[in-house]
Design a protein around this nucleic acid. Structure first.
Lengths: 335, 335
DNA sequence: CGCAAACGTTGAAACGATTCATTAATACGA
DNA sequence: TCGTATTAATGAATCGTTTCAACGTTTGCG
């Protein structure tokens, strides 16, 4: 049996369809008696408004598309949750697309979202798809870049200053008197890794006698971090770094596990350790981890706000919001 | 400027709207020459099919609603990813709703999804909302329960046998010769906690001389686990458990951190430790953690399959799929 | 009492696609 | 050459809303 339509309600209540619509959208325009009669019919028939038809007429949907690199990553799941909260506040829903670092899937979702006439797309792009996104905006779908630096004059964007984060972390190590700094890098194709390294480099250059070594991990995982840690333990004392800055918390936790287990190097006495992201596990690690906090929730919320801004004033110039990361000091640098 | 419609394409190509529709949906019905002319116009005008209108006409959407308890929980984010993958295979998208254990938000999403005429709702319910869900199905929106035991004859469901998981974990500890078992419980309002305890109880009852103690944590977090660990360290040796089964991995990791840091009790020599969920961090803990693996990805995929099943044959009787969890042995019980 | 304003309700048009009965054009065989 | 298939293309109807000009009724005021 087909669900009841507004027409069914109208004939059941003995009024015109326009009146039912008014009851739903402008209750004040309808006389009390009529309104309650219509409401009764709605209840009796179990009528539920068909948002698809409403959207068609309005030419606008109530959904926002969100395309993330990896929903399994706490950074993005937290961001998604915040975006979804913010959207819910204005009665919208978030449709989630997980590109999984795959450019094909990314395009698939962009196509899907455009066909669905979402209000806008919040995207953390895999590759450079500026052209595709520009076409989107030209046809009326707003685009907001997330965790991706600057969309120039074309797109609004929200990101975190990773150079500044890298600087902050390294400066902290230097401030503790450490001079032999090492940066545990992930794959350099991630702009996050490159930027954090750049920040570290700058900090080291500012201090006479400080050196920076780059230890290259081939992944941003706990396992990769362990590999780096195991490598360190094998070295002779003189060549060891005394301050370690890792490209993210997973790497840092891996390094920590390796050192803790082998018990040859103490944290922070022998090596001070700083991570990045401040994931939940950082605070509750064996040695609570000093980290750089990214305001994930704020990023998600801001992305939605930037979109709302674009929607309410289509002529508004795109804005780029860049957040400053924050140093969170814990025992791993504070013995 | 409004995006181009099928009508614009038709007049640009000098054909009727029906022909454009046929080019899009049944290319064979259209002569080669006409088809290419239409395709040219589509490209030139940058036409993108309006899925909203299509859905209205079809009376069916291409979206699936997913309502989870907490997208920040790795269990659910992994599940969501799998569901989204499975949906993508059949050209559908997943709309995500995060209830955050809040019944009001849960209802909000149910309403929203029904108005959007999603094909079906996959839901991990906060409270007992059987009646609301029954109304949904009666109006044609399919419902699949996720990680919730048995929807009876009304709903299909997919879940994991937590009793069996608890039994498995405890049996393993007993098999190692441990006799003084303790279960680190989370809040008993979660059916997962109750079921896992029930399984543990059964296993202990099967072995003469074995005892089961319940240590009540007030949360399912690492921090709560630490509290339990700290409490254990303070005890005198005689009263200590030698086998510890935690309601989830977060608790287990907390306990592990406490014991590792204080170094009074060794894992697994003094206390063997088993967690639950087998989250990514379990394998890479200081002492790799033995755990009970839940097939999250499989759950997500199965939920989508159950939905597809209901959609393709509306008369099909609801099915309940229950997965068996699996024991993953690591160093924390295998010294 | 008469007129204007305010109020409530109506019903048709529109949104953009799909569907399908109908018509037009072409090909084929006798 | 004619009639019949076959193939293409047409365009109106439809999906379920919202919008809005038009209309009828009531109210208020002089």
């Amino acid at each position: 049996m087909r669900p009841a339509s507004i027409k069914d309600v109208a004939s059941h209540a003995g009024v015109a369809v326009g009146t039912v619509s008014n009851v739903l959208n402008y209750p004040d325009r309808v006389a009390d008696k009529t309104r309650s009669r219509v409401l009764d019919s709605i209840a009796e028939l179990g009528f539920v408004r068909n948002d698809v038809a409403r959207q068609l007429r309005a030419g606008q949907s109530r959904t926002i598309g969100l395309i993330v690199l990896d929903i399994g990553n706490p950074f993005f799941s937290s961001l998604a949750r915040a975006a979804e909260d913010a959207a819910a506040d204005s009665g919208n829903a978030v449709v989630l697309g997980n590109s999984g670092h795959d450019a094909t899937r990314e395009l698939h979702y962009i196509d899907l979202f455009e066909e669905q006439r979402v209000q806008g797309v919040l995207i953390s792009p895999v590759a450079d798809i500026t052209e595709r996104l520009r076409a989107l905006t030209q046809r009326g779908t707003k685009v907001i870049l997330v965790d991706s630096p600057a969309g120039g004059d074309t797109f609004s964007s929200v990101s975190v200053d990773d150079v500044s984060g890298g600087y902050l972390a390294t400066k902290h190590l230097l401030g503790l008197g450490r001079r032999r700094i090492a940066f545990v890098a992930g794959p350099q194709r991630f702009h996050q890794v490159r930027d954090r390294l750049a920040g570290a480099t700058r900090a080291v250059e500012e201090v006479a006698g400080a050196t920076l070594e780059v230890l290259q991990a081939d992944d941003l995982t706990v396992l990769a971090g362990r590999g780096i840690g195991d490598g360190l333990v094998g070295r002779d004392r003189g060549s060891l770094p005394d301050g370690l800055f890792c490209a993210n918390d997973l790497l840092a936790l891996g390094v920590m596990q390796s050192l803790t287990m082998l018990r040859t190097l103490r944290i922070p006495e022998d090596v001070a350790l700083v991570g990045y992201d401040d994931i939940d596990f950082a605070a509750s690690a064996v040695v609570p981890l000093t980290s750089i906090r990214q305001p994930t929730a704020l990023i998600g919320r801001t992305a939605v706000e930037l979109l709302t801004e674009q929607l309410s004033d289509p002529a508004a110039r795109p804005r780029s919001v860049v957040f400053k990361p924050e140093l969170v000091v814990r025992a791993s640098t504070n013995g």
